[in-house]
């Protein structure tokens, strides 16, 4: 299968501290991959790196030329008190089509209505977003992704604080995108959900612990290695590539850190 996203020795991070460290690999076109790992293991940072919000500290992240990207940030990034209706939020997904100034046409309004219907929010068009439940808001955000009609879809923790019925509905939507040959990367914490529904998984602990078939990736041995990952950054850590790093890395390997 051709590559959709290629990581070449990619390091992403903040203030000289890596959150994703020397990642190599390829996300294939049409694949459905769960990105798993502990808090601080670099999952959300990787999403921001792919979408271009965060520039690499070193290496590169290359997206194939014909790829359009839809990104769903974590809900906490959204200002729920903002005075907007559901239809306003979903219509933001028209940006790639209409940009800053393009008028929303009849077919755009139809696409928004269809997306709302697909996520079960018919009749919610004029509801203020601050009156929605967490699950309803997440459905609205999925509708926005639908409207974007992209062929690479990045979802950052879309199932957080969502009830089982909504999770099941949203998983079906993700599977539909996968069936339509779109490439989908989803940050997930529920490992059972990954084993049941995702063909591929990337287990991160700043660097990749394992990547490939979801069940093999989430083996107890790999999960044990990932669990030994240390979340806190070290202000006194040696600079990557220096002689000290050699000793540091070896110490890390003795602890099982990838």
């Amino acid at each position: 299968m051709p590559a959709c996203v290629t990581f070449e020795d990619l390091t992403l991070g903040y203030n000289s501290h890596p959150a994703v460290h020397h990642l190599n690999g390829v996300v294939q076109k049409g694949s459905l991959t769960a990105v798993v790992g502990a808090n601080g293991s670099g999952k959300s940072t990787l999403m921001k790196g792919i979408v271009g919000i965060l520039k690499p500290m070193s290496g590169r992240c290359a997206i194939s030329a014909d790829i359009t990207v839809a990104y769903l940030p974590q809900q906490s990034e959204l200002d729920r008190t903002f005075p907007a209706r559901v239809i306003d939020l979903v219509s933001l997904g028209l940006w790639p089509r209409r940009g800053l100034l393009g008028r929303h046409r009849k077919e755009d309004r139809a696409a928004v209505a269809e997306a709302l219907s697909a996520v079960g929010l018919e009749g919610f068009e004029t509801r203020a977003i601050d009156t929605l439940s967490g699950g309803q808001l997440q459905r609205a955000l999925f509708a926005r992704v639908l409207v974007q009609n992209a062929n690479l879809i990045l979802l950052d923790e879309p199932f957080n604080a969502i009830d089982a019925k909504t999770v099941a509905d949203l998983v079906e939507l993700i599977k539909r995108w996968h069936g339509e040959d779109r490439t989908v990367l989803v940050v997930v914490h529920d490992l059972d959900l990954v084993r049941e529904h995702f063909p591929h998984a990337l287990l991160l602990a700043r660097g990749p612990v394992a990547w490939g078939n979801a069940r093999k990736t989430l083996s107890s041995e790999n999960l044990l290695r990932a669990r030994q990952f240390h979340e806190a950054w070290d202000e006194d850590a040696p600079w990557c590539g220096s002689r000290d790093v050699y000793r540091h890395d070896h110490a890390g390997h003795r602890q099982g850190v990838a």
Binding site: V51, G52, Y71, P73, E77, L78, D79, W95, L100
Partner: peptide, 22 residues
């Protein structure tokens, strides 16, 4: 001119950054 971008930046700044450099 910037209405749509101003609204998007207030409501969901990360989304705006994912679709535009504005």
């Amino acid at each position: 001119l910037f209405w749509r971008a101003l609204v998007a930046e207030c409501l969901d700044p990360l989304f705006l950054r994912s679709v535009s450099r504005l």
